[in-house]
Simulated assay, not measured.
Amino acid sequence: MKTLYMVRHAKSSWKHDVGDHQRPLKGRGKRDGKLVSQYVAKNFEPPQKIVSSDANRALSTAHYFKDALNISEADFSTNSALYDFSGQQVMQIVKSLEDQQDRIMIVGHNHAFTSIANMLGNKYIDNVPTCGFVMIEFPVDSWKDITTGKTVKTVFPRDLKK
């Protein structure tokens, strides 16, 4: 069994004069990052590895999860190919994950993450919101063999603010 945790980066700020890759989180994004990561840490098994886009907003979001889930530096990495909006590069990364790890979290961007959640999961998601978490399980032994799995759980910031 393979389990993929997908996290879309938290809300970013447009008020800074920086390129898209360098955009930081805004206040709401920081609050949501803390809220969702702490909820995930209390309610889900931690991933064996976190792989994040190297874009500032995704990497900042990933650090909230790294800290809340107590993930070591050795089990935390970035991959610039996750700075992808179509999903093709993201799928290549997922299919090439190391098979000795059964639970992996990836942190990245839309539209790729909504597309992949709908392609790989069995539950339609209109839009994975900023700092949205999606858990999909696959009844396979190798990441290269994943096709459609089961969307086990979604956690969106708005669900935790009610």
Rank of each mutant, 00 (worst) to 15 (best):
H21V: 14
H21N: 13
R23A: 03
R23E: 04
R23V: 04
R23W: 00
L25Q: 01
K26F: 13
K26S: 14
G29T: 06
K30E: 15
R31G: 12
R31F: 14
R31D: 15
R31S: 15
D32M: 03
D32W: 03
D32E: 15
G33W: 02
G33F: 00
G33T: 03
K34C: 13
V36A: 01
V36L: 01
S37G: 06
S37W: 00
S37K: 03
S37E: 12
S37C: 05
Q38M: 11
Q38H: 08
Q38T: 12
Q38S: 13
V40E: 07
V40Q: 05
A41P: 05
A41K: 04
K42T: 08
K42V: 02
N43W: 01
F44D: 05
F44R: 00
E45V: 00
E45T: 01
P46F: 00
P46K: 10
P46A: 07
Q48A: 12
K49T: 08
K49D: 10
I50F: 02
I50E: 04
V51D: 06
V51A: 09
V51S: 05
S52F: 02
S52Y: 02
S53D: 07
S53K: 01
S53Y: 04
S53I: 09
D54N: 14
D54A: 13
D54S: 15
D54Q: 09
D54Y: 10
A55T: 11
A55V: 09
N56F: 06
N56R: 13
R57C: 12
R57A: 10
A58H: 08
L59N: 12
L59R: 05
T61F: 04
A62Y: 06
A62G: 09
H63T: 09
Y64P: 00
Y64F: 15
Y64G: 03
F65I: 04
K66T: 07
K66D: 06
K66L: 04
A68E: 08
A68W: 09
L69S: 10
N70L: 13
N70A: 14
N70P: 00
I71H: 11
S72R: 09
E73K: 10
E73M: 09
A74T: 13
D75Y: 08
F76P: 11
F76Y: 15
F76G: 11
F76N: 11
S77T: 14
S77L: 13
T78Y: 09
T78M: 11
T78D: 07
